[in-house]
Computed example of a mutant assay.
Amino acid sequence: MKPMFLRIFSAAAAALFAASCGTESPVPQGSDIQCAIGAGVELEAVCTLERSAEGESVSFLIHHPDGGFRRIEYDTATDQIGVGDGADALKVSEESTAEIAVFAIGEDRYRIPSEMLRTQPQ
């Protein structure tokens, strides 16, 4: 009797596991931005910028096409961006201008219109 129970339990567990693997994450809400995820990759508009405000700073979640993400903060008082969390530092590129913010976090690079950073979320 015990082996039959194990077979039924194993089949039920396998079915439950298979069903949970088939669920896709929802498409992130936000604006498309240019990013290059990894070393040697060209910038493409394949990332999504999602924003939320918290006092003097605006928090951003940059969604990568592979499901990864980065969190950055924009300080409205100082007009500066920084990493919201994580071990890698944010390095602003010399390519940045008043119109475009270009920066890297680790090997990942991002190019965001400055207006997107300065616009308060709704």
Rank of each mutant, 00 (worst) to 15 (best):
S93C: 00
Y110F: 15
F5I: 14
A12H: 05
A11W: 07
Y110H: 01
T78E: 15
I105G: 07
V27T: 10
A15C: 11
L49N: 10
A12L: 12
S93N: 09
A45I: 05
G84R: 13
V92M: 00
G30S: 03
R109M: 12
M1F: 07
S59C: 10
L6T: 04
S114D: 01
D79M: 09
L61V: 08
T76K: 14
A18S: 12
A13S: 03
A14W: 03
A98K: 03
A12Y: 04
V102Q: 08
S57P: 02
E42G: 09
E42W: 07
R7D: 00
E44N: 13
E99F: 09
S31H: 08
L49C: 05
R71S: 14
G40W: 10
M116P: 02
F9H: 04
S59W: 00
G67F: 09
A77G: 07
G82P: 05
T119H: 04
I33F: 00
A104N: 05
G84W: 06
F103K: 07
S31F: 01
T48F: 02
C47M: 05
V83K: 11
E24D: 12
E107K: 07
P113Y: 06
L43V: 10
V46W: 05
C35W: 07
L90V: 15
S25I: 06
E50F: 01
A87R: 08
R70A: 12
S96P: 04
P3Q: 04
M1P: 12
F17S: 13
A11N: 07
V92I: 07
T78Q: 14
Y74T: 05
M116Q: 09
A15R: 03
E94Q: 01
K91I: 15
R109S: 15
I8T: 05
T48S: 06
C35S: 11
I100D: 03
G68E: 15
T78G: 11
V46E: 09
E95V: 01
V92Y: 02
